[in-house]
Amino acid sequence: MQPLQIAICVKPVPDPKESTQLQINPTTKTLVRKGIPLVINPMDRNALEAGVKLKEANGGKVTVFSMSPPEGELTMLETLALGADEAILLSDLIFAGGDTLATARVLAAGIKAQGNWDLVICGAESFDGGTAQVGAQLAVLLGTPWITRVSHLKRVDDKHLLVTVEDEVEQRELLVQLPVVLTVESVVNQARPLSLWGIVEARNKKITVYNADTLKLDQKGIGLDGSPTQTRDLFAPDASREAEILTGDSPQQIANQLLDKIGWSRKGAAN
C-alpha cells in the first residue's frame, strides 16, 4: 500500500498525577500551568501510536503538530522518541488563551503550511480541557471529513480506512476515504513506552517552531482575544450541605446512629 503522510496533533498537558496543584489566573481566567511538569496528553499518545503503526506497516512520515508555549519543546522531543519523524511547535505569545476554535485555527494553519497530508489523528479529548471539540473543528477548517471517538481502526486499501465508533446505543463501522481527520479513544491501541533507542534516535530528528508570522495568521481569530467564547466567571461549587458528623464509642454505635438517622427500621428502609 502507498505510504501515508500522517499529521498527529498533540497537546502538552499538566501531568495528571499532579493535577491537584492546578491553579487559576484570576485575571485571564485560564489555567496556570507553571511549575507542573507537562506531559503528552494521554489520548494523544494513542493518536501518535496509531500514526506510527500505520507508518511502520506501509511507510510514510509522521509529523507531530502542537500549539504550545516554548516549554512544550520537551514534550515534542518525547513524541520524536516515541516514533514521530518530525515535530512542529506552533508557538507564539498571541496564541495563548485560545478557545477550541482559536486553537483549531492555529493547528490548521500549521498543517497546511507543512504541505500534503493524508490523515490527521488527534486524541479524542484532552485531560485538562476535556471539551473534545478541536478534532471536528480542525477538520471543518481543513475542509475534510472527520470521525470522532474512534475505538478501532484498520487500513483497508490505498485510500480507505475502516473505523469503529460507538454512540449510546450502537456500534458502527464506517468506511472512510482519505484525507480525513480522526480522533481516537484510548482503547484504540496500547501506546508504546519510551525506549532508550527511541531517545537516542530523537536527537537526530528536527523540531521546527512556527509563529503567527510564519503561519501568516490573522490575529483576529486567534488567542484569547480572537476566541469566540470567553470565560466570564469562575466560582466554587455551591457546598450547600454541611455534614452532621456522627460519632460514638464504637463502630456499632456509629452504625446504629446512622441507620436511625435515615429511618432504617425493621422491614427495610424509609427516607
Binding site: 471539551t131 473534545a132 471539540q133 473543528q137 472527520w146 449510546e168 481569530g221 467564547t229
Partner: peptide
Amino acid sequence: ATYLGRDLAPAIAARLGTGCAAD
C-alpha cells in the same frame, strides 16, 4: 452532550465561526 451532539455542535460552530461551550 451525547456522542452525536459532541461531534456535531463544535463542527457547526466552526462552520459558522462562532463559539461552542462543551458539556
